[in-house]
Design a protein around this nucleic acid. Structure first.
Lengths: 76, 76
DNA sequence: CTGTGACTTTCAGTCCGTT
DNA sequence: CAACGGACTGAAAGTCACA
């Protein structure tokens, strides 16, 4: 198996899953940020895969999105 | 205030799950740290729930443990 | 082999904006 | 509404000596 997974693409995929769930909930980045008690610009950069998000913030986002944290990290 | 989930215990539980998986694999903290390319003392503090670990390190640990990242975050 | 405190460096995360 | 930039603060990353 491939030894090293590309970290940038890992974060990008995570961001894409978050974005998808957010849109499914019909929330704006601002609204999601408000629900998760995070900064609007931070949520934006997370969705774009630019941030190595910490697990507690991941939990906040999951709660705001109404899903389990493990769901956010489910790879296909 | 509403739904103020205890963050410390969240991290402790995460650490406990990691420890459990590590022991199931019969690895020492040192060995796991080596596999995950992390410091031994860092792994130690994660298992004790003292660190709000970021997703890329979570991914490293999951890979070293031979499980999915989502498995690490599965709550009971 | 593991826990711990102390420590420095890096970057997560906020806040002000503009496009 | 979203992307993005600059500047900043606090927290995560990462390491060490020693119990």
């Amino acid at each position: 198996m491939p030894y090293d997974k590309d970290e940038q693409s890992y974060l990008s995929q995570l961001g894409a899953r978050i974005r998808k769930l957010r849109k499914a909930k019909q929330l704006s980045q601002e609204a999601l940020a408000f629900e998760a008690d995070l900064d609007r610009t931070y949520v934006s950069s997370v969705e774009r895969g630019e941030r190595n998000i910490a697990v507690l913030n991941l939990a906040k986002l999951a709660r705001a999105l109404g899903v389990e944290v493990s769901t956010l990290l489910q790879e296909e």
